[in-house]
Design a protein around this nucleic acid. Structure first.
Lengths: 237, 237
DNA sequence: ACGGTTCAGTGAACGGTGTTTACAAAGTTG
DNA sequence: CAACTTTGTAAACACCGTTCACTGAACCGT
């Protein structure tokens, strides 16, 4: 059967139950309610027992953030799975809409992930925009005409963009698309990052209710922005 | 002298001292350290005394947010005060850079203001992007050629944009610039909002350390984005 | 099958938190 | 001076994260 011993299986099980309880508390009662004692109460154990699984309350929240990001990532990929391999532009559109929809449907999770400082975290650098960035990179790479040159991106950024280029190429490759550095120029990378800035800016403003004026229905504005983004990248319809 | 009685002056004084202490704690030791007892300790009083001034801890934090926004607003206006009345494009550039600089220099304040949900707040709808929005509106209105039409903005948004148009016209007017609705078209308003989305997106990502890749020096990227923004609005050099 | 070891969980305790309540001591006002 | 308002205190409550000594059960090598 499974390689793990019985003990390890039980441990992994309750570990999952703990985070599930924490997640439920977060969603139903907000971040403040995610307390060690409340979680333990939910599982029918006492608070100190949780220290067998997590070093601290902060540690638990950190791992909860990882869970959330992973779930969102899976959901986003699920939303573009139905689309054909060749409809990459539709995939970009879909992933943008899915990201907004997820954030609006899970404001507490979205806030928690963003409120937590990225500083003293593990080796994972991003894990939030990665899905969008991968799909967008696939779109540009798969397009036959990479007319974008890296003439208009400041030379100071070439180093950073080049290292990110490698990361993106590897990310795309892990989805079965082999691309070369030539197909994914530095200019293209730059446009992708700029698109992520806009996408994130809109969604964050909307989720946090910080739009400069009361928007009755932000959806058409979002649609319009996605169109503009695609046009700027060079994929206007 | 002042209209207020002696008691009212004393009250206002300690009220200011309380928020000053809270602010210092926030900056030096982070949000978690802004506790009622810590604030009281700083003033040499006890925690329950603070309830004579604020209804709750949450209420105090809310008002602290207001303080922060107001301070930032003043600082931003101070940064563009040196520029001539007619150099409005430079003013936009300056206010963008000032916003980024302020956010990077005050990450704790920036995070606190954004982490706090906007929902159950007072009558103030925004108070964060207002400075940028006002200056940007002034730029467009002062420009002789308002070639932007509202043909390319979704008709669904006309209502929301029109109401925001009024707000902006009033905001610009309060700075001595009378403009008509014709000089500040709906298309222009839309571009201003889009610019704010990008500006906020970049700054938030940078402050929260959530850029998709390690950027050694984000400043040239920011400069490049501001250029692009101005070009999109119709003010490329 | 037994004995030692590992491990999950408990209960009590410590210092800290927001908040309420009853009360004292000032300041203000008639 | 007396009545009243305002400001602060001390004690208490329930809750929080965290530590520690301890129990009991599961595991493992012999």
């Amino acid at each position: 059967m499974t390689e793990a011993t019985r003990r390890e299986r039980l441990r992994a099980e309750t570990e999952r139950e703990i985070r599930q309880a924490a997640r439920t508390l977060l969603v139903t009662q907000g971040r403040e309610a995610v307390t060690l004692r409340a979680i333990a109460r939910e599982l029918g154990i006492t608070a100190p027992a949780l220290y067998r699984y997590y070093n601290s309350h902060e540690d638990l929240l950190r791992q909860l953030c990882d869970d959330i990001c992973q779930d969102m990532s899976h959901e986003l990929y699920k939303d573009i799975a139905d689309l054909g391999e060749d409809q990459v532009r539709d995939q970009v559109r879909a992933v943008c809409h899915a990201f907004r929809r997820w954030a609006l449907a899970h404001p507490q999770e979205f806030s928690l992930v963003f409120a937590s400082p990225q500083d003293a975290l593990g080796p994972k650098p991003d894990q939030f925009g990665s899905v969008f960035l991968e799909v967008a990179a696939r779109l540009i790479a798969s397009h036959p005409a990479p007319e974008q040159e890296h003439a208009d991106v400041p030379s100071t950024l070439h180093g950073d963009l080049a290292s990110f280029q490698e990361v993106l190429i590897q990310a795309v490759a892990s989805h079965g698309c082999e691309v070369s550095a030539a197909e994914l120029s530095l200019g293209a990378i730059y446009h992708i990052v700029q698109s992520w800035v806009r996408l994130y800016g809109h969604v964050a403003l909307e989720v946090f209710g910080r739009f400069p004026f009361a928007v009755a229905n932000p959806e058409p504005m979002f649609d319009r922005m996605i169109d503009q983004m695609l046009t700027d990248i060079g994929f206007g319809d």
